[in-house]
Computed example of a mutant assay.
Amino acid sequence: MRFIRFSIQNNLPAFLDYHDELDSDKHYLMVNTKNSNDPELKEMIFNYLSRLAVIKQDKLKQLKN
């Protein structure tokens, strides 16, 4: 659910003012995705986050390993 909300908030225009949970969801995904038991979901989240400029490459490497 956090991934869905993050992806929606990330793609909505700023004038809608629906970005309140963006930072907390990003943090949650970065911390908890690595521990996921679902490899397909983990790969989907990793691929999505890797396309975003707001995620540093060193953080992505930690997420992937």
Rank of each mutant, 00 (worst) to 15 (best):
residue 39 P to T: 07
residue 61 K to N: 12
residue 50 S to H: 04
residue 51 R to W: 04
residue 38 D to H: 03
residue 25 D to C: 00
residue 21 E to G: 00
residue 8 I to S: 12
residue 32 N to K: 03
residue 60 L to W: 06
residue 9 Q to T: 04
residue 43 E to C: 05
residue 63 L to D: 09
residue 52 L to T: 00
residue 15 F to D: 01
residue 51 R to Q: 14
residue 5 R to Q: 12
residue 19 H to K: 14
residue 49 L to D: 10
residue 62 Q to V: 05
residue 52 L to Y: 11
residue 24 S to K: 14
residue 47 N to S: 14
residue 16 L to W: 10
residue 52 L to M: 14
residue 62 Q to M: 15
residue 54 V to F: 12
residue 41 L to Y: 14
residue 30 M to T: 00
residue 15 F to L: 13
residue 35 N to P: 08
residue 45 I to E: 05
residue 2 R to D: 12
residue 8 I to D: 08
residue 52 L to D: 05
residue 13 P to R: 03
residue 17 D to I: 05
residue 9 Q to N: 02
residue 24 S to M: 11
residue 17 D to F: 08
residue 47 N to R: 14
residue 37 N to A: 11
residue 44 M to Y: 09
residue 20 D to Y: 11
residue 8 I to E: 15
residue 23 D to T: 01
residue 49 L to K: 02
residue 42 K to E: 03
residue 23 D to E: 13
residue 27 H to G: 00
residue 7 S to G: 10
residue 38 D to I: 08
residue 10 N to C: 12
residue 59 K to I: 09
residue 33 T to M: 08
residue 21 E to P: 09
residue 10 N to S: 15
residue 36 S to F: 05
residue 10 N to I: 06
residue 62 Q to A: 14
residue 8 I to F: 15
residue 38 D to T: 04
residue 47 N to T: 02
residue 48 Y to P: 02
residue 21 E to I: 00
residue 22 L to M: 10
residue 20 D to K: 01
residue 42 K to D: 01
residue 54 V to H: 00
residue 15 F to I: 13
residue 42 K to C: 14
residue 18 Y to D: 04
residue 10 N to M: 06
residue 29 L to T: 04
residue 56 K to T: 10
residue 27 H to A: 15
residue 53 A to L: 11
residue 20 D to T: 06
residue 45 I to V: 15
residue 24 S to Q: 15
residue 7 S to R: 07
residue 51 R to T: 09
residue 31 V to C: 03
residue 26 K to H: 04
residue 41 L to H: 06
residue 59 K to Y: 00
residue 4 I to H: 02
residue 27 H to E: 14
residue 2 R to K: 12
residue 25 D to E: 02
residue 14 A to T: 01
residue 37 N to R: 05
residue 47 N to E: 13
residue 62 Q to F: 12
residue 20 D to E: 13
residue 8 I to C: 14
residue 31 V to G: 03
residue 17 D to N: 11
residue 37 N to P: 03
residue 9 Q to R: 09
residue 54 V to Q: 10
residue 63 L to M: 04
residue 57 Q to L: 10
residue 47 N to C: 01
residue 65 N to H: 14
residue 63 L to H: 01
residue 14 A to Y: 05
residue 14 A to F: 09
residue 4 I to T: 15
residue 35 N to W: 06
residue 25 D to Y: 00
residue 31 V to H: 02
residue 61 K to E: 08
residue 61 K to P: 02
residue 11 N to I: 00
residue 13 P to V: 11
residue 25 D to T: 01
residue 61 K to S: 05
residue 32 N to M: 10
residue 30 M to V: 02
residue 34 K to T: 07
residue 60 L to F: 10
residue 12 L to P: 07
residue 48 Y to I: 03
residue 22 L to I: 11
residue 47 N to L: 07
residue 4 I to D: 14
residue 56 K to R: 08
residue 54 V to W: 04
residue 31 V to L: 05
residue 54 V to Y: 04
residue 42 K to N: 06
residue 1 M to T: 10
residue 45 I to H: 08
residue 59 K to P: 01
